[in-house]
């Protein structure tokens, strides 16, 4: 531990720069993934279309080896951030797509009926009824995507796009334990913070009534959200299943 602190002290500038690079590339990728997947999935879920694709998106996403995606993007994108961003966006879309779709579909049909009965237009039903009720599941998807993106951004070091992964790869090359541990620690902390942060958002968007209902008889929630956020397995283990490909 002392070695790590000394390393950070000696390399303050680099540490800060790479931390910023990592956050920047992750944030941009998450934003793009949200932009592409969220509206589409909301629309699909609301209209009950494209279920097969949306539900299986996260299965497919889970099977994609992130290392390969980055490597394949290099001939076209060069050794620059857009290459990595491309791969990160591809990995971030599935959980957002699947969770948003399923979240909207899972809203109680009677509630939707009631809303329509009250005279709400389709878009109002989506915005005022479905979205708020689906929010926790959607948030869970965004949470998964963000952790996935932060984790995979580490591999950007292999194609010289900076980020915290460089401390790890450089350290591995010369057996510099302090460098390895610094990179690993910082990127782990970043991922855990994002997970916890979005976890809070997830809980914050859960309507109180739903929270109370879940509290009954379900095992407690840990930082990983536990099965209380929905039976983790389910018939396909899709809704809140986190993905890890990097």
């Amino acid at each position: 531990m002392g070695g790590v602190l000394r390393f950070i002290a000696d390399n303050r500038g680099d540490v800060l720069q790479r931390l910023l690079e990592h956050v920047e590339i992750s944030a941009i990728s998450l934003a793009i993934a949200l932009l592409l997947a969220l509206p589409l999935a909301l629309w699909l879920g609301h209209n009950g279309k494209g279920g097969f694709v949306a539900i299986n998106a996260s299965n497919v996403g889970r099977a994609l080896p992130s290392l390969a995606l980055i490597a394949l993007a290099v001939p076209w994108g060069g050794l620059k951030p857009p290459t990595v961003i491309f791969a990160l966006v591809l990995l971030g879309i599935p959980p957002i797509l699947t969770n948003t779709f399923v979240g909207v579909r899972q809203v109680d049909p009677e509630v939707v009926e009631a809303a329509r009965g009250m005279g709400m237009r389709s878009s109002q039903v989506l915005g005022k009824v479905e979205l708020p009720l689906a929010a926790p599941v959607i948030m869970a998807g965004i949470r998964t995507a963000s952790v996935q993106i932060i984790a995979t951004a580490t591999l950007g070091a292999l194609v010289a796009t900076g980020g915290l992964g460089t401390f790890i790869t450089d350290g591995l090359a010369v057996s510099d334990t302090a460098s390895i541990l610094t990179g690993a620690l910082l990127v782990a902390v970043l991922a855990v913070l994002a997970d916890a942060g979005f976890g809070l958002l997830e809980r914050a968007t859960t309507p109180t009534g739903v929270k109370l209902e879940r509290g009954r008889g379900a095992p407690g929630t840990g930082p990983a959200g536990g099965p209380a956020t929905a039976p983790a397995g389910g018939p396909a283990g899709i809704e809140t299943e986190k993905e890890r490909t990097a």
């Binding site: 060069g78 050794l79 620059k80 194609v159 010289a160 090359a173």
Partner: peptide, 18 residues
Amino acid sequence: FKGLAQGSLKYQALLNNQ
């Protein structure tokens, strides 16, 4: 300083002016 493994990847970066 960009850490790049020895080999073609590094030359690629040089030829593309990265």
